[in-house]
Write a protein that binds this DNA or RNA. Structure first.
Lengths: 359, 359
DNA sequence: GTCTATGTTTGAATCGATCCAAAGAAGTTT
DNA sequence: AAACTTCTTTGGATCGATTCAAACATAGAC
């Protein structure tokens, strides 16, 4: 019934309907933006013209340029886009970020890319008011790219050593201590550590020195410092504690456990630097009928919801993920030019995966 | 070292650096867009000026207006934003959509809103080249809103009866038949059905007629038709099969099971219209020591990955989720003005939650 | 009949880029 | 020396809106 609804290309601009209705484009704009200041008769005439010509309303592209604000924040990662939907930690974080955005009416743009070149372009051309950067891996380059846009931005996790970038992170050292103390107090003395990466794309057994010297991932380093500081306090010789770095996926976690449990001294307690690793470890242990926490206790890190329903439920160091998401969104939207670095506290959540040492 | 990096507002435009470098704005633009056609000496001069003035590169806002294309697709839902990260089906779908986007270099904008008014505005002002609409609930309004933008768009799930909108869906009738036949062939004769909504925000026991007459959710209706067509074929009186509608959440699923198992004739087989419901049902049954599939068999719908690792693994009707995501993205990006309605086939995936009838 | 207050409408300026036809420069042929 | 290439650069037009000071109407006050 309406005219030309099925026309292929349909470049009807505000100016067109203004002309058709016999008013200036200024008035036509007001009809949509502030209808109350336009005389009713004129308003109806313009609306009728718009309807007749199949005008879809003011094009946001035009408005955007004038207004300057996009009203959307970009969430960037160097991982593929699907990371946001696959990784448990990312999902919880995104859920909290999206709640904060919903509350303020801001949209979310996901930014990422298959390769590095694409990533640069995607960040440079993202239509956003600011960036929240997940710097899980290869963070430094991502942060640099985001910085170059000169938009408000905040890094999640303080992996970047660069003091000049705004960041929201957690106290990794305290978190490590919390986990280690819990197990030590339960009487454990033989430990093994499932670590996150300390250098790009590396996995396998490493030493404390290697982690300390590879400056790229301060999160890994600090959690380890927390573990070791506490274990030393209990008189444990940390130089004998095996550390196995994984890629935070099932395959390398399993490889790590094979390695650890092939050592002469089997551990009674495992410190995992992520819940994801801990959950994979739980599977591996169950398959081998190694009782948790009867034979081996395990403590994760992150506090993802999956940990609450695993078999057994996972003792873990919980990050205030919801709080972090909220603060990140706030930092972007209420940006005042200052860039602060926030260190949030973590919490030990004791569930059933940790118990007294069998010894 | 660099000039005014910390200035509060910093409106450096391309024209500014052009003037500073003593070239026309056209040339300055070329330095960034097609550097190879600019003489090296000039190029360096412009770049130096940009650097000195703290120019972050061409503002995408400006480029956008000229180019017309945003290079991003919007994914819209009437649920809160966090739906994308919480719901298993949505997550798998989003993962496949994001893979398709990654492959083509397109970005993703998440569109949603707390209330209906916000939703309208968010859709009207979203900077996207097209919409993929998740019309799980309240689909019709959402579809209408997206239509009004007159951008390419495609609805996921054919819940909208409106033949004029492009949509990608699955053969719900065939899917229902597949599930029902599988159980009937295993000897089951006493069935119960956990249904999705057939009318807005409704849950509780319903009759076949109620589902048939509430036209809002054709997905629910068609799955039911598939179930009943097949059960009738096996001589089962479908008017005696209890149907309980849930909100697809734990609470209402549990309420549904309480209801169903309080009936005089306990079922030996449950047909669930979503994996999410089926998984909650599995929990409920385990808590009551009702053996699956010993006492009761259950078949889900969707084919989410969680179903493969549940206890026991879930027999289900798998949707080609990855394929749907890919096709949806393709439909937006290669939009040729035509709107097609695609009906994709589904697959029965037999796992351990279904077995011979105990009778 | 002039003045003022109030309510509408106008049209130029602006947002920040890209595109392109035409002009200019420098080097080759004829 | 004129004609023809080839390579660079220029500056105006354009994308689609919003904003705002000024112009214009209309009505009521004096």
């Amino acid at each position: 019934m309406t005219a030309l609804t099925s026309g292929k290309t349909r470049p009807v601009r505000l100016a067109d309907i203004a002309k058709a209705a016999g008013v200036s484009h200024g008035t036509a704009s007001n009809v949509f933006a502030r209808p109350e200041i336009v005389r009713e008769e004129v308003r109806e005439r313009v609306k009728a013209a718009a309807e007749a010509m199949g005008y879809a309303g003011p094009d946001p592209k035009g408005r955007l340029l004038r207004a300057g604000k996009v009203n959307a924040i970009g969430v960037a990662t160097a991982e593929p886009l699907s990371y946001f939907f696959d990784d448990p930690f990312a999902r919880v974080m995104m859920a909290s970020i999206s709640q904060a955005c919903d509350a303020t009416g801001a949209g979310i743009s996901l930014v990422s890319a298959a390769n590095n070149e694409q990533l640069a372009w995607n960040i440079q051309s993202a239509l956003v008011d600011g960036f929240i950067v997940f710097c899980i891996e290869g963070g430094s380059r991502l942060v640099e790219l985001a910085r170059e846009r000169k938009l408000p931005f905040v890094a999640l996790d303080l992996d970047s050593e660069n003091e000049a970038v705004a960041a929201i992170g957690i106290d990794n050292i305290a978190g490590g201590s919390l986990a280690a103390r819990h197990l030590a107090e339960l009487g454990h003395r033989r430990f093994a550590i499932l670590a996150l990466e300390s250098a790009d794309a590396g996995f396998g057994p490493v030493t404390q020195e290697q982690v300390e010297t590879s400056s790229l991932y301060s999160g890994t380093r600090d959690r380890l410092r927390g573990y070791f500081a506490e274990l030393s306090r209990f008189g444990i010789d940390v130089s004998l504690v095996p550390i196995y770095e994984t890629l935070n996926d099932e395959e390398t976690v399993r490889a790590g456990l094979e390695h650890i449990f092939a050592l002469p001294q089997r551990p009674t307690a495992i410190l995992a630097m992520s819940d994801r690793m801990a959950l994979h470890a739980l599977d591996w242990l169950r398959e081998r009928d190694i009782a948790v926490p009867g034979d081996v206790s395990i403590v994760g890190f992150d506090g993802v919801p999956e940990g609450a329903v695993s078999k057994p439920p996972l003792t873990t160091v919980a990050q205030p993920i919801a709080e972090m998401g909220r603060l990140a969104v706030k930092a972007i939207l209420e940006n005042d030019g200052s860039h602060q670095r926030l260190l949030l506290p973590v919490d030990l959540v004791v569930r059933a995966s940790s118990g007294p040492s069998p010894g």
